[in-house]
Amino acid sequence: MAEAANGALLTVAGLEAWYGESHILHGVDFHVRPGEVVTLLGRNGAGKTTTLKSVMGMIGKRSGSIRFDGAETIRLTSDRIARAGIALCPEERGIFASLDVKENLTLPPVVRPGGLSLDQIFELFPNLKERLGSQGTKLSGGEQQMLAIGRILRTGARLLMLDEPTEGLAPVIIQQIGRTIARLKQSGFTILLVEQNFRWASKVADRFYVMEHGRVVDGFASADLEANKQKLQDYLGV
């Protein structure tokens, strides 16, 4: 996995992470270049979500190296990592029940210029505009996912990390999120996805990494997906 990472926006090397006494990540290596959509694949418990949380600084005990835009971030707290330009859309969406849709949408502060305006977000997700006054958790699952993605688009973050954005959603919503990711890529955003649905991910990602037991065990470009299909099915147990 030690491919050349020159010019990468995010370079993760030898990343280890612990939840209390449990050692979850055992030396994760990968990189994401500017403008790429990269997907982390793997079975449940492989360490994909922990990897995203570690990059975001949300895991207390971690070691190794995480370089973002040339600067080491392994020792930074999550608020400083966010201000450096990384944003996370968590697996369980993280919509706040005590906030309405507009408050949820505008909660993350703008950390740098280049983010989308509210109108641009409504263009991507028209449903949100009609539900601005509703309580965040009263939205449907699909609308909550749109809200969770929409709110990090405002911030101007250069690296968007989306954890299982299609989980539990209807096919029509999954297609809409796929189109949104394609548009974001066109606009120059760099995206790191965690996804179980590799057929969907194959349509939006440039490259894949496969994780097993807290390590990256394989990686290939989207163009090589067909050639690696059997191997990937073995990895994922599908």
Binding site: M56, I81, L99
Partner: peptide
């Protein structure tokens, strides 16, 4: 207010609010 929204959100999920860039 916005400050109040931060407070209310941090009551629910402080680690996520911090990951948005707020010094919780």
């Amino acid at each position: 207010t916005k400050l109040g929204a931060y407070l209310r959100a941090a009551t629910e999920r402080p680690e996520l609010v911090r990951a948005f860039g707020i010094d919780v």
